[in-house]
């Protein structure tokens, strides 16, 4: 599956690379040369890997997936929402909520653990905003 996706990616980028402007003067190789070469090799590697997997397919099928991939996806979704939410409600509240959401997803139910969220969030925003003077998003709702 993933090799198919990478193969597709390589082919699309290969096509795009052929559209790049070629070198104007004779001394140079153009913008397209290196990406074309790279995409070409990558596509070749993917085909090789697909062939290998196909030949040994029976072995791979045997390995069951015990892992809980839905939970990984949900954590990822929380992070994406957290990134967007930071713009809206500001860094500190978003971080506290995001931290708690991940704890919840990981199956933590004891409330004492949730205290870590504000402590860590305050510490982090203090270090970045006050010590290193990084502008953390203030949240557009409050501006």
């Amino acid at each position: 599956m993933i090799y198919g996706a990478i193969l597709l990616f390589a082919l699309v980028f290969l096509f795009l690379a052929t559209q790049f402007q070629e070198a104007g003067d004779m001394h140079a190789i153009g913008s397209g040369f290196y990406p074309i070469l790279t995409c070409f090799i990558l596509a070749g590697l993917c085909i090789m890997q697909l062939v290998t997997e196909w030949r040994t397919a029976s072995d791979d099928q045997a390995e069951a997936e015990p892992a809980n991939w839905q939970r990984a996806l949900m954590v990822f979704a929380v992070l994406a929402v957290y990134g967007l939410g930071m713009m809206l409600i500001g860094y500190l509240p978003a971080t506290i909520l995001g931290f708690m959401a991940i704890l919840f997803l990981l199956g933590v139910r004891r409330w004492t653990w949730y205290l870590a969220a504000p402590v860590f969030s305050f510490a982090l925003s203090y270090i970045f905003a006050e010590v290193f003077m990084v502008f953390l998003p203030a949240g557009s709702l409050f501006q």
Binding site: V75, M87, Y91, A117, F120, L136
Partner: peptide
């Protein structure tokens, strides 16, 4: 580990942001 995961996640996001103040 249950605390490490959200900590790294939050640190990662602010770290990525802070380099260039960029969403």
């Amino acid at each position: 580990k249950v605390l490490i995961v959200p900590m790294i996640a939050m640190l990662a996001v602010v770290g990525a942001y802070s380099m260039n103040n960029s969403m």
